[in-house]
Design a protein around this nucleic acid. Structure first.
Lengths: 344, 344
DNA sequence: AACTTAAGCTTAAACGTTTAAACAAACAAG
DNA sequence: CTTGTTTGTTTAAACGTTTAAGCTTAAGTT
């Protein structure tokens, strides 16, 4: 086993001080006025000896790890996995390394992850914050740690964030259902006070109100727990139908809700879109294969990932920079599941 | 902004040396014979001052980063995203942090990632190796860097690895199709020499041979590029049908191939399983929603992730330990797409 | 009383870098 | 030739830890 070669080893073989080697390998020859010939020798020997800089030592000295943490709910959820991939790619362009972590919508886990990553001296965070994690975010801000919220944010907190236009997208999606002739539209969402979810509900509600569809039996919103299984969702849907047997459309607030919801509808023998039309927030590969291809809201994952990284890196470079708060529009992809269909 | 508090700060406020603080905070009081009372004072002050150890400094001193790299093809692919999640969870149990990276089945990117992570002083790697990356793996071995291959491995290389029983699973899946009465079975796979893919092909082929179904028109294997789009897969399938119009079943080698393949079949108006039965390797949420729920091979992702981490950590602790090579069985989940159906 | 042992603590070097400051030699200018 | 400037190089401290080795005092053992 070969020992790792350090700057000292190179210095020794070339016969110069470590300072010179450092200057050359960091392309600071100009500022440091290093001789042209010796610079070349140093460079060559470095290659010859297979030198790989020790980033840990570098970080310790410079106080920058060129690493940041990405905390999401669950990296195995396609929404976050795709986001993560886009973040990874964009980060690489800036020579940054990303450490992903899953907090499972759990504030305690989230705090734990923040601690671990802070100890690892990450230069900043991109976080899809869990409920009740507001104080954790505030603490980071107080410690002047660069940070960008993604997917969700906190109303009262002045932070960087990158989200999609949850309210408008929902409003638009529900309006689309109404335009298709649906008059009793239900919604299945998560039970949480996170802004993105509240916005989606508001969008639903306002669309209904603005179209004078707010009757005794509406709004038809059912909220379930983040870790609700399929059975609980089936129960929720059954309750919605009980509340208003005329329900002719369902708006699902996320892709996981949709997947479980569709399976439930299948089991209950409801037909889409004849018995009930469907629109949902976020996408899934599975939607293409549902017998009635789903109408869904496509989130701008690529843009969100890119922007978040760019904002974070700007913020790391200039900690005094003003907060950037952007909302990137989503797109409604209309397909069969929300089509106008003549009932009997 | 508060300055970060170091061991030195604690030492100063308590009025002791940094050594004492270090011993106490690392629970080495016994070995270092630290006084009971002062130890408590140190502990209390550390908490009071909000001390967070600097892992970077720790790593530099100890030579261990308590971090490892996980290199997969693409973190946004559900197969790898799920694997990643399991790896993350298991690693956390050992207080290890994971850095994920996507190599896109590209040896050059893979080498680049290995370099970056090596510079970051990861203690080891879990790698789903790309084609032509064998020499990169060999180089790591030569440098005595702990490493576990996952999903795939190299025949000639003595490394740790954790895979599923690709050959047997494929053999079993194809035998199942044969048992269901299919006699002209095609296969769509990736064009690569990676062992896992070769094994899946061998399994297919042997099942056909052993059942005396090897005729002039078989084997019906079509291979496509890793980044093949749907159109190319459609072409492949069309060619298979051209080669043998009697083809009555298709075996797809991965989930991405399946998804694109199913879309192609839909476009070409083939019905599953009546016109063509389907079985595929690996799963996807989408398979539940295909009109004819898919029969698939379920890989033991949880076990694979766990085992890989355990082996890696054992190897990090004891670099001389013998290589562990395990193959965890997959499970065939039989559903409608491979059902026996009377034709005409 | 003289010596050993134990207990409790400090010193200081080291990990692999970066970088300001000091130094030395060569050259230019008066 | 002094003095100043430029060019090329070294010195050494620092980043926040760990840990072997050393030091001091008190307590035990003859």
């Amino acid at each position: 086993m070969k020992k790792k070669v350090s700057i000292k080893d190179i210095a020794q073989t070339v016969g110069v001080s470590t300072a010179l080697v450092s200057y050359v390998l960091n392309n600071k020859e100009k500022e440091a006025r290093v001789g042209k010939e010796i610079a070349q020798v140093i460079r060559d020997t470095a290659v010859e000896m297979g030198y790989q800089p020790n980033q840990i030592a570098k970080s310790l000295k410079t106080g920058k790890s060129h690493t940041f943490g990405l905390i999401v709910a669950d990296i195995s959820n396609p929404f976050f996995a795709n986001l993560a991939r886009n973040v990874e790619d964009e980060a690489k362009k800036f020579n940054y390394t990303v450490i992903f972590a899953s907090a499972d919508e759990n504030a305690e886990k989230s705090q734990n992850l923040i601690n671990i990553l802070t100890e690892r001296q990450v230069d900043g965070f991109i976080i899809a914050p869990a409920e009740n994690s507001q104080d954790q975010i505030e603490a980071l801000l107080k410690n002047n740690i660069p940070l960008v919220l993604i997917d969700r944010y906190f109303k009262g907190l002045d932070t960087n964030y990158v989200v999609t236009n949850n309210y408008e997208a929902s409003y638009h999606a529900v309006s689309h259902l109404i335009a298709a002739g649906k008059t009793n539209i239900g919604m299945v969402a998560y039970k949480t006070d996170l802004v993105h979810m509240l916005d989606r509900k508001r969008g639903y509600l306002d669309a209904i109100k603005d179209n004078k569809l707010l009757k005794a039996k509406t709004p038809l919103i059912k909220t379930v727990d983040f870790n609700a299984n399929q059975e609980e969702i089936a129960v929720g849907i059954r309750e919605l139908f009980a509340q208003n047997p005329a329900m002719d459309a369902l708006f699902f607030a996320t892709n996981t809700l949709t997947l479980k919801g569709l399976k439930s509808l299948n089991k209950m023998q409801y037909r889409v879109p004849d018995d009930v039309a469907i629109v949902c927030f976020d996408e899934s590969e599975a939607f293409d294969f549902f017998y009635s291809p789903l109408t869904y809201i496509e989130q701008p994952l690529l843009e969100m990932g890119k922007k978040a990284v760019q904002i974070l890196i700007k913020n790391i470079a200039d900690k005094k920079s003003l907060n950037t708060q952007i909302s990137i529009p989503s797109k409604l992809i209309v397909r069969q599941s929300s089509a106008t269909v003549k009932k009997d």
